[in-house]
Computed example of a mutant assay.
Amino acid sequence: MEPRARAGKNVGKMNFTHNELAMLLYAHGDVKNPLPETVRVLDEILTDFMQSIAFEAARAAHYSGRQKIKYEDFEFSFRKNPAFLGKVQEVFEKQKEIKKARDVLRDNEDEIMRNAAEEEKKREKTGTRVAAADEELGEGDDDAAAEADALGKKR
């Protein structure tokens, strides 16, 4: 089915919020508060663009014998426009970098937790305790001179 045949359900409705589109216009050099007609037209243009690209990606997936759309289908949809294709590829490369960084961080976090658990077990076996960490602080530990300095009082 052509995307224009489906577009009838979106006629007259805003698919993006006014603030989102106003910020987009402002980022590209428009005034801070654009006219409502400008926002409405931009909403229609963006909706039509996104529907046509999604339709092309769905068509590419269908030709490949799949029901689900993959990244390669969007690449195929953008093949005629190198600027869009480059931007899509850049976004997916950044996404892969972020995923790798999260995996590295998660691995390091797991290792730190394992090491801390091992040290705790060693301390329990030997019966030693870290006095400074387990000491409960009370009123007797307060330094009167430091407290006076913090409050701005004379000694």
Rank of each mutant, 00 (worst) to 15 (best):
M1V: 11
M1C: 13
E2L: 07
E2D: 10
E2R: 15
P3C: 07
A5K: 12
R6S: 15
R6Y: 03
K9R: 15
K9D: 05
K9T: 15
N10V: 07
V11G: 03
G12C: 03
K13I: 14
N15Y: 11
N15T: 12
N15L: 10
H18L: 11
H18K: 13
H18R: 07
H18D: 06
N19I: 09
N19E: 11
E20R: 12
M23S: 08
L24W: 05
A27G: 15
A27Q: 13
D30N: 06
D30R: 07
D30H: 12
K32D: 07
K32Q: 14
N33D: 07
P34K: 02
P36T: 12
P36L: 03
V39I: 15
R40V: 08
R40H: 03
R40P: 01
R40Q: 08
V41Q: 01
V41P: 01
V41E: 07
L42W: 10
E44C: 14
D48E: 14
D48G: 04
D48C: 12
M50H: 00
M50V: 13
Q51H: 12
Q51I: 06
S52K: 13
S52A: 13
A57Q: 01
A58K: 02
R59H: 06
R59N: 08
A60N: 10
A61W: 00
G65A: 05
R66N: 07
Q67I: 08
I69Y: 02
Y71N: 09
Y71H: 13
Y71R: 12
E72C: 05
F74E: 10
F74W: 11
F74S: 09
E75Y: 02
F76E: 10
S77L: 09
R79E: 02
K80V: 00
N81V: 00
N81W: 00
N81H: 02
P82D: 04
P82G: 06
A83N: 08
A83C: 05
A83K: 15
F84C: 10
F84N: 10
F84S: 09
F84I: 04
L85N: 08
V88E: 02
F92V: 14
E93N: 07
Q95G: 00
E97R: 13
I98N: 11
K100T: 09
K100Y: 04
A101I: 02
R102I: 14
D103A: 09
L105D: 06
R106E: 04
R106N: 08
D110K: 08
D110R: 15
E111V: 12
I112Q: 10
A116M: 09
A116N: 14
A116I: 06
E120T: 02
E120F: 07
E120C: 08
K121L: 06
K121P: 00
K122P: 01
K122D: 05
E124Y: 01
E124Q: 14
K125C: 08
T126H: 12
R129N: 05
R129M: 04
R129L: 06
V130L: 09
V130R: 06
A131W: 01
A131T: 05
A132L: 04
A132K: 01
A132I: 00
A132P: 00
D134P: 00
E135D: 07
L137D: 05
E139M: 10
G140N: 13
G140S: 12
G140R: 09
D141H: 14
A144G: 01
A144S: 04
A145N: 02
A146R: 09
E147K: 13
E147D: 11
A148K: 10
L151N: 08
L151V: 03
G152N: 04
K154G: 07
K154S: 14
R155K: 13
